[in-house]
Structure formats: C-alpha cells, structure tokens
Simulated scan of single mutants.
Amino acid sequence: MPEPGRMPRLDPLAVTRARWAEQTLPGDPWPFLATGSLSRLHQIVSRALDDRLKPFELSRTGYFLLTTLSLIKGERARLGTLSRYLMIHPTTVTLTVDQLERAGLVTRERHPHDRRATLVRLTGSGLERVRQANAALQDDAAEGPLGELTGRYRKLFEALQEVRAAVGDTDF
C-alpha cells in the first residue's frame, strides 16, 4: 500500500507492455520486455551489491575475483583463467589484481612451469575479507534489493542457469 498522499509505484515495463499494445507496434513485445527486465534487475542488484561491499573496500569485480580464487584448488589461478571465468577483459583483471595486491589481498607469482604466465594467489587477508563480505551478503536482516533476494537466490540462479546454458555460457 502506498503511503497516504503518495502515488502508487508503477512497473515501467508493465506500462511499456500496455503502451506497446496501444501503439500497435509490430512484433512481439517479449524480447524487449525480457531483456529490459534483466537490464533493470542487473542495475538494481549491482548498485545494492556495490553499497554492501563498500565497508569491505571491495569493488564488485574485486569481490568476484577473490571469491573465484577462494573456490579454486590452491587458491591461485592464471590471469587469463580469471578473465574467462569472470567474463571480463584481461586488462580489467590486471587492474583489479593491482588494486587487490596493493591492499594485501592477493599476490602475484611466477607459474612453476610456464615462464610466460603469472599466477594470482589469494592471501590469508584476502580469504578473510571475502569470507566477511560473503557473510554480509547472506545476512537475513538485509534491507533493500539484496534483502528481497534472501531466500530467492537459488531459485533465481536455477531460472537463469537454463537460459545461460542455452546461449552457450557453459563453454570455457
């Protein structure tokens, strides 16, 4: 229920759907509505995630990189592997590793068998920081968009996993 004196909030994509029919635009509105929904959800969750990670002095990319390293055997990976896993440009990985290294959360080391490759290793401080960040993201008392996702994360993941597989996201 909206507060007295306030207009109820409208779903802009529901309005768009209604206007599509009124304007008699050609074609099916669902591609626009589905991709618009994904884009809006991405923006909302990204903003909320940024806010939640701020106390840990982590960017989203830094958080994803640290979490990925924590889940890899040996807690280390090549820069290129991280780029592929995270689907981000190699330069972005390098810049993020630079920031995390300055903060003492990762170190760089030579690959034991390939002189051309550099490995990124998670430090004890990095592991502790990412554990704290993950605990904060699982806080059932969280307010806002992330709080609304509590209890829905698995359902959302499973719904998107089928679509991601269909578009080839499982190919590394």
Rank of each mutant, 00 (worst) to 15 (best):
I72V: 15
I72Q: 04
I72L: 15
K73R: 09
G74A: 10
G74W: 00
G74R: 03
E75R: 11
E75C: 07
E75T: 11
E75H: 05
R76F: 07
R76D: 07
R76T: 05
R76N: 11
A77F: 11
L79A: 13
G80V: 04
G80W: 01
T81W: 04
L82V: 05
S83N: 03
S83M: 02
R84M: 12
R84L: 10
R84V: 09
R84C: 02
R84G: 02
Y85W: 08
Y85C: 02
L86R: 02
M87P: 03
I88Q: 08
H89F: 06
P90S: 06
P90C: 06
T91W: 07
T91P: 02
V93A: 00
V93E: 00
V93C: 00
V93G: 00
V93I: 10
V93Y: 00
V93D: 00
L95H: 14
L95S: 09
L95W: 06
V97S: 00
V97T: 12
D98G: 04
Q99Y: 02
L100F: 03
L100V: 00
L100T: 00
L100H: 04
E101D: 15
E101C: 01
R102W: 09
A103R: 07
A103Y: 01
A103E: 07
G104V: 12
G104H: 08
G104N: 05
L105M: 15
L105H: 11
L105A: 15
V106Q: 01
V106P: 04
R108E: 03
E109Q: 15
E109T: 14
R110H: 12
H111T: 09
H111V: 05
P112D: 10
P112I: 01
P112V: 04
H113A: 07
H113Q: 09
H113E: 07
H113W: 11
D114H: 10
R115F: 08
R115K: 14
R116A: 13
R116H: 15
A117R: 11
L119K: 06
V120T: 14
V120E: 06
R121P: 05
T123A: 03
G124A: 03
G124F: 01
S125G: 15
E128G: 12
E128A: 15
E128H: 14
R129D: 01
V130F: 01
R131H: 11
R131C: 04
Q132R: 00
Q132S: 05
A133E: 06
A135H: 05
A136E: 11
A136Y: 00
A136P: 11
L137D: 02
L137S: 01
Q138Y: 05
D140S: 14
D140T: 13
D140W: 09
D140P: 04
D140F: 02
A142I: 04
A142G: 06
A142R: 12
E143I: 09
E143C: 06
G144F: 02
G144M: 08
G144I: 04
P145K: 13
P145S: 15
P145F: 07
P145R: 09
L146R: 13
L146I: 10
L146G: 13
L146W: 09
L146V: 04
E148K: 10
E148Y: 14
L149R: 09
T150K: 14
R152N: 14
Y153H: 10
Y153F: 14
Y153V: 15
R154F: 10
K155Y: 11
L156V: 14
